[in-house]
Simulated assay, not measured.
Amino acid sequence: MPIKIRPNPAIPDHEVLRKIGGGAYGEVWLARGVTGALRAVKVVWREDFEDARGFEREFEGILKFEPMSRDHPALVNILHVGRSPDGVSFYYYVMELGDDVSTGQEINPVEYEPRTLRADTHQGAGVQWDTNVCIDVGLRLAEALDHLHERGLAHRDVKPSNVIFVNGRAKLADIGLVATRGQRTFVGTEGFVPPEGPGSSQADVYSLGKVLYEIATGKDRLSFPELPDSMPTGIDRKRWLELNKIICDICEPRISKRKISNAAQLADALRRLQRGKRRRQSGGAVWMTTAVLALFAGWASWEMVKDSEWVRRMTPAPKPALSQTVQL
């Protein structure tokens, strides 16, 4: 696809400095607001869509998401949404700026490069992240997805480059892909999209599972379910194995085999792992365990009382056999 040459977008009350990112669904620009604060501005162009309907649908999604973005600590805050001066060329939204990959919150506009999960994994290619950090990142993002899904939205492109860090904490970004859950427009990235396709809450959870696989193993998501070249040792080994079980569950290609089917369940599993507790059992497993325990308790109780005086009193005495007189 040829590179499109476009002028710097005109964003009201902002000085657009330079482009810092982009893809099939828009460009990200570094800009300075009237207060002097540096912001990230996502610009989505109408000409990148086949028809106006798709463009307007994406715009409606960001309008719906804008107020709720500030209600959760693991979602990138959207500060303003607007359209191009002519009203048709593009829409845009202004976001908080993420950390610099090298200098954190000390931003040099000339050299700024956003710190994303992808940037971190590229710096340490093939390196496994600390298990506790993996659990923390996974929990934050699972809770953010649950926040979206409860409000009828899906992200549709969860991947390392769409996870940025703000003040050192992971946040879900590239919200321009957020849409009403179930919308069938195909978006996503190979290896992060489940076999059933994107657009559902369960598909978002699958994608997050592949993100966790990459940082927990140091391998590419296309290598799933290969184990890392070296396994953790000591106390960390048990926690890593439990984390790996969760990842294998949510990345299971067959939907019917996935025990964790939504973001709330994933967050609960990771929260319990973080606290050193066992995972909750599924409904069928709980029923079976309860039934077995009930039968065992009943048998044990009977063994304790079967020879007691009370049982002997309650048990009818056997009737004596009737003797028969034989007449000769």
Rank of each mutant, 00 (worst) to 15 (best):
P232N: 10
L153W: 01
K259W: 10
R156C: 00
S256N: 11
R239I: 06
F224D: 04
D204V: 06
K159M: 03
D174C: 02
N167A: 09
G152D: 02
V205W: 13
H155R: 02
S201I: 01
L241G: 00
F186S: 07
Q265E: 14
T233V: 12
P228I: 09
G152C: 00
P198K: 12
I175Y: 02
Q202R: 14
S161E: 07
G191M: 08
E196G: 03
W240I: 05
R184C: 01
D229L: 15
A216L: 06
A269N: 13
R271A: 13
G209N: 07
V158K: 03
D220R: 15
A267R: 08
D174Y: 06
S230L: 09
D220F: 13
Y206S: 04
E190A: 15
S200Y: 10
V178K: 04
L266E: 06
N244T: 08
D268P: 01
L153Q: 00
T233M: 13
A203W: 03
E214P: 01
G197D: 08
R140S: 07
T233N: 07
L141I: 13
P232D: 09
P194C: 10
R271Q: 14
K257V: 03
V187F: 05
E150V: 05
L243M: 03
K219F: 07
E226K: 15
A216H: 05
L222H: 15
G182R: 14
A216Y: 06
L222V: 10
K238S: 11
I235V: 15
D249T: 07
D268F: 11
R254H: 11
D229A: 14
A267E: 08
L172A: 04
R254W: 09
V211Q: 03
V163E: 02
I246Y: 03
S161P: 01
E143L: 13
H155Y: 01
P253D: 15
R140M: 02
M231Y: 13
R156K: 07
R271I: 00
D174I: 03
Y213S: 01
E143F: 04
S201Y: 08
D229G: 13
A144T: 07
R184Y: 06
A154F: 00
R271K: 15
V193R: 09
Q183F: 14
E150I: 05
F186A: 12
G234Y: 11
V211H: 02
A173I: 04
A142Q: 01
K259T: 12
T233H: 10
A154W: 01
L145M: 14
V187C: 09
G218C: 04
G234T: 12
T185F: 14
D268W: 12
R239F: 04
V187K: 12
E242F: 06
I215S: 00
R221W: 02
P228R: 14
I235P: 12
T233G: 08
